[in-house]
């Protein structure tokens, strides 16, 4: 029983990582209707920027805010320069673009900051949280930030004009354009926000997995699994999906005989496929789609 509780708690802690990433994945999907394979690398690069700022003596929160601003602008720039010209291109062209971006960002980060791991600070400390040795204050803080982020996004999309415009531009671009929404800039805005959320995810994940150019490789796949499970159109679903994937992965690895540790990554991939086959909208996706 203790092992069970421990594995669930450890799963929640890892799940927070996936949830953060899934949130960024869903944001970009909302804006452009594609999964961005370079999302993880963009988050990693943002995290390196903040690390570099801190190396130069900028305090944590200063670096945090500068990095968010930088990421927001960089996200918009990437959309304007790289993906706006590809807007009418087939999906595969876009996918090729994403993969190119992935390779370019990964190698550039390696070139600039090399491939050794770096320690990354946490604003929450890493003492045990509420006496539990399995969740540290950092991981608790991470869960808190994820929830705050989620609430923020909810209000943004539900109650602000620009949020509403973004949703409209993503789901029915033709009609949105007819009512005077600049859909092209809404997409760019979506990129900017997704990149900024990715940066937050990166800065929260880095203290756990250590900062290095390949830190997001595995995380992004689990983030995809979480987003698909929760529903690609629902930020709330993505977060719930993240925690579920984290717990499910640990329990399957511990209790299903024959699955074991070798198959942890395939579990995530199997999850993506089964959800897409059985319930393509994910656990929470359908509801949102109806409202729009």
């Amino acid at each position: 029983m203790e092992l069970f509780t421990n594995q669930v708690l450890a799963g929640i802690a890892t799940g927070a990582i996936y949830a953060c990433m899934a949130l960024a994945v869903v944001m970009i999907y909302q804006a452009i209707d594609h999964l961005n394979f370079a999302q993880g690398e963009m988050a990693m690069f943002s995290t390196f920027i903040s690390w570099q700022l801190m190396q130069w003596g900028v305090p944590y929160w200063g670096a945090f805010i500068i990095t968010l601003a930088f990421s927001f602008v960089a996200g918009i720039a990437i959309e304007r320069i790289l993906f706006k010209p590809l807007a009418k291109a087939p999906v595969l062209t876009n996918v090729a673009g994403f993969i190119a971006l992935f390779a370019i960002i990964n190698s550039s980060a390696g070139l600039i900051w090399d491939f050794t791991i770096k320690q990354y600070p946490t604003p929450f400390g890493s003492a045990p949280f509420l006496g539990s040795q399995l969740i540290s204050t950092h991981q608790a803080g991470m869960i808190g930030v994820t929830v705050l982020l989620l609430l923020g996004l909810y209000f943004f999309f539900q109650y602000t004009r620009i949020g509403l415009a973004m949703r409209a531009a993503a789901s029915v671009p033709e009609s949105a354009r007819l009512v005077g929404i600049n859909t092209s800039w809404m997409i760019a805005l979506g990129w900017g926000m997704a990149t900024a959320i990715g940066a937050i995810a990166g800065m929260l994940i880095a203290p756990v997995v250590f900062l290095e150019p390949n830190m997001m490789g595995g995380v992004l796949i689990y983030g995809f699994a979480a987003a698909v499970l929760g529903g690609l159109t629902s930020p709330f679903g993505a977060v719930v999906g993240g925690f579920l994937v984290g717990i499910f992965e640990n329990l399957a690895g511990t209790y299903i005989p024959g699955v074991g540790n070798e198959l942890k990554l395939p579990i995530a991939l199997a999850l993506i496929i089964s959800v897409l086959v059985v319930k393509p909208a994910g656990l929470f996706g359908r509801h949102i789609v109806k409202r729009v």
Binding site: L3, Q7, N261
Partner: peptide
């Protein structure tokens, strides 16, 4: 563990 895993916390717990 596999090198694709983001964190290895669960193994240490076990």
């Amino acid at each position: 563990y596999e090198t694709t895993e983001p964190t290895i916390d669960t193994h240490i717990v076990k």
